[in-house]
Design a protein around this nucleic acid. Structure first.
Lengths: 333, 333
DNA sequence: TTGAAAGCGCTAACAA
DNA sequence: TTGTTAGCGCTTTCAA
């Protein structure tokens, strides 16, 4: 290739990478020969020889639609920043640790972990070696940058929306012990106090079935008269379970009960589901995550960054005024 | 690292890779030092030095849930075969051509393309350089192996299921000019002839909205009396649109009209959707695709392989006997 | 502005 | 069984 253009290997390398040195004429000649030969640099060789790789490693849950969306935007943001994204999926046979190891071995300069579930001490070990950004999840790991949306505010938006519709009895469905669940619970409680609504918590997991089970347990509770008029599910998937269980017992949504989800996943947008939900802003998170990594790599930042983005309420057909409120008001307001 | 164990670099390399040569004692010592130092081989260097990379490149549509499922299984199958999977996602900023280029530059030994949309001549160019497997999509490209499920048989399964329920008037919704659509149409027509059902085609795309539009156009057709009693959507997503449009006009499913989808995506499994669909067997396709690649790489196969897997009907709540059949039979059969 | 040469961290062939 | 050596295909100094 270099021989074909009558220049040395080194000059060809400079010409192709666009570095300054070679004259315009040489540049053109090299580009020409390269194109004619279909020349492409050997990636491993380039990566080995270069001082820096400009590789951003991303660990994603391959089955997660939300992660897919993030990855899409990270890819774009990385390119703008002059980096290349390398994907390492968590699958049935490759857990998160393995995914991270693959990226490290591949000489990625920074790690973007989507919804990481690694132990805090492991995160800290990693962060000691290179920039680590946790996306979508709070972590106490020092030196790990965090990009997430304000889960408490997100739930608060929902509570305020429901309160404005006239709901007074709310229930938060789902939970668990994670940081996300904790934040959402806190937002729920504070917003409840602020809006004068009564809120209760109903245990539940993160699956459709868990949502359905939560509703069934709620219906078994004595004093059915003061059932909540609105159910806030912690994720869209849980909300689907809630919707199912309500349909099973003949309760209308939003007539008898309003239901909301969280994530604004493609599911929520389906007309058949039409779920009021909370958009966490995948693009903004992706951009912030790439920015955080690049700031450490090129900007010399060494202090911890925590970027908390504002969520956005997306109102759809699954939430409406409660029966009592509708009855108590003049028709057609 | 080699120094630490008191052996040469070469011996250490052999010991770590498990090749035979080093004695058990040396092996242990090297493993020990490596573990203590947290030594990990530099991937680009390894890839550059090795004769073979044992890398299987996979191009996927990052937003596709079906591709995600395939990737999950490909990862597992590749590992069993002694290969490593490298993912190259198609995103908003990286088209399929770019995704392929990335894999080629990275010295992948074979390419698994999920639902490829590259031109036939481009596929042939690629296949001239290394094994290429098209997954889920027929192609006339010579030398490109194909792994797909029998789309005609899949639709035929649905037709037979509906015919057995008593349906006589069917409609296939969706289509387009692709190979997949063509196969499904053919299966629809042949199975229709075989089962004595009358089938019509309703144009439609591959989105939810297209499904809804198809139903609306069908309802505008004069002679509403002989509307089809069952609608076969070409994908689950299209089926969702169909379900919505039917609900809009107050037609019950499956009471008034039965609806079926295709893909058996997570969507179809949602209880709120509960869609009769066709499972294409992601795991079997993944295994077949990896096998095809490995046969060429290690088995010396040079003839084209086309693996056509049998789809599986998954009956759910969206299909049932037509009103007329139900009325014509004794109650409770 | 260019060429020559060293070296990135490994593997693999060959000698010992 | 082990050490030595020569690359793998690039990038990046340093001289010219």
């Amino acid at each position: 290739m270099a021989a074909g253009a009558g220049v040395s290997k080194g000059t060809a390398s400079l010409a192709l990478s666009g570095a300054d040195g070679p004259s315009a004429a040489t540049r053109a000649r090299v580009a020409d020969v390269a194109a004619r030969l279909g020349y492409r640099a050997n990636r491993p060789a380039t990566l080995l020889a270069r001082r820096r790789t400009h590789l951003l490693g991303v660990v994603m849950q391959v089955r997660s639609g939300y992660h897919a969306e993030l990855v899409d935007h990270v890819q774009a943001a990385a390119e703008v920043a002059g980096y290349e994204m390398v994907l390492s999926p968590v699958t049935r046979t490759h857990d998160e640790e393995r995914a991270v190891t693959t990226l490290l071995d591949g000489r990625c300069e920074a790690l973007l972990l989507l919804g990481p579930e690694l132990a805090v001490r492991r995160l800290e070990e990693l962060a000691a070696r290179r920039p680590v950004v946790a996306v979508g999840r709070r972590t106490s790991a020092r030196a790990v940058d965090v990009v997430r949306s304000a889960d408490d505010d997100g739930v608060a938006l929902v509570v305020e929306h429901l309160a404005a519709l006239g709901h007074r009895e709310l229930a938060l469905v789902g939970g668990g012990s994670g940081a996300i669940a904790r934040d959402r619970r806190r937002g729920f409680e504070r917003a409840g106090a602020r809006t004068g609504t009564r809120g209760r918590l109903v245990a539940g997991g993160t699956t459709e079935e868990a949502g359905a089970a939560a509703v069934r347990s709620l219906l078994r509770t004595p004093g059915r008269a003061d059932l909540p008029t609105a159910l806030l599910a912690q994720t869209d998937l849980v909300a689907l379970g809630v919707l199912d269980a309500l349909a099973d017992v003949g309760l209308a949504v939003p007539g008898d009960v309003s239901v909301t989800g969280y994530d604004d996943s493609p599911l929520a947008r389906l007309r058949r589901v039409d779920l009021t939900s909370v958009d966490q802003g995948a693009q903004a998170q992706a951009v912030a995550a790439v920015t955080a990594a690049v700031e450490r790599l090129d900007g010399g930042r060494t202090t911890r960054a925590e970027v908390v983005l504002g969520p956005r309420l997306v109102v759809r057909g699954s939430s409406g005024p409660p029966r009592s409120a509708a009855a108590g008001r003049p028709r057609g307001d």
